[in-house]
Amino acid sequence: MDTTVYVPIPDEGTAARPTVTPAVRARALTKTYGRGEAQVRALDGVDVDFTAGRFTAIMGPSGSGKSTLMHLLAGLDSATSGQSFIGSTEVTGLNDKALTALRRTRVGFVFQQFNLLPMFTAEQNITLPVELAGGTVDKQWLGTLVDTLGLGKRLTHRPSELSGGQQQRVAIARALIAQPDVVFADEPTGNLDSRSGAEVLSFLRRSVRELGRTIIMVTHDPAAAAYADRVILIADGKIAGDITDPTPESALAGLDALRTVAAR
């Protein structure tokens, strides 16, 4: 209970902690879909910082703009206005070529549907990003990843021969192989049973704690959010709260608070 804080983030939040370099930043990030009557403000001037070497979860009601925020931060979609940064690179405003280069080296993704290539083995799937970038696979790093994620015996299997949890672990390895600055995960446990989900989440946490990665994860599940170092709450396209060192209970309480706010 002592860690549960529900505080709107002040506008000049970054200035308060100048010593820590944020891995990902958003400034007045706005995204609207459609025109006129049918216009939807999916994101409404979001300012947020994600600290490097941390595991952050984004939570919020359905349709609140979680996925949209993630897409914009990762440069998968273009912002209507505002800026987003990965490290010191401004992602908004990069062309497709630069974005591709960014995705190759500095960003990793983990998808809800795993999205492994069915015709390749687990190992081929893991090393694909490096090969696409024309680089050579760091064998030692691959070994570390495989050991950490417990994939040693599965490397020659094709996705159809793996369980959902195993597939998602392969996907995490794929996201980490290029040693990116940040890994984005959109509901990575959405298609998994609770045991496999727990497995995947602890692997994500280990990647942060032991391998020093930065992970931003969208989730609906307070139990999943509890694995993170911090939870950012979002409602109606705006940041609505921030919980440090969450527990399932504190995350759930945060969500409930949002709902009551919405209901009012």
């Binding site: 070529k97 591709t100 995705r103 993704f109 999205n115």
Partner: peptide, 8 residues
């Protein structure tokens, strides 16, 4: 997916 993981 391929585009997301770096296929130009």
């Amino acid at each position: 997916t391929l585009r997301a993981i770096g296929l130009s």
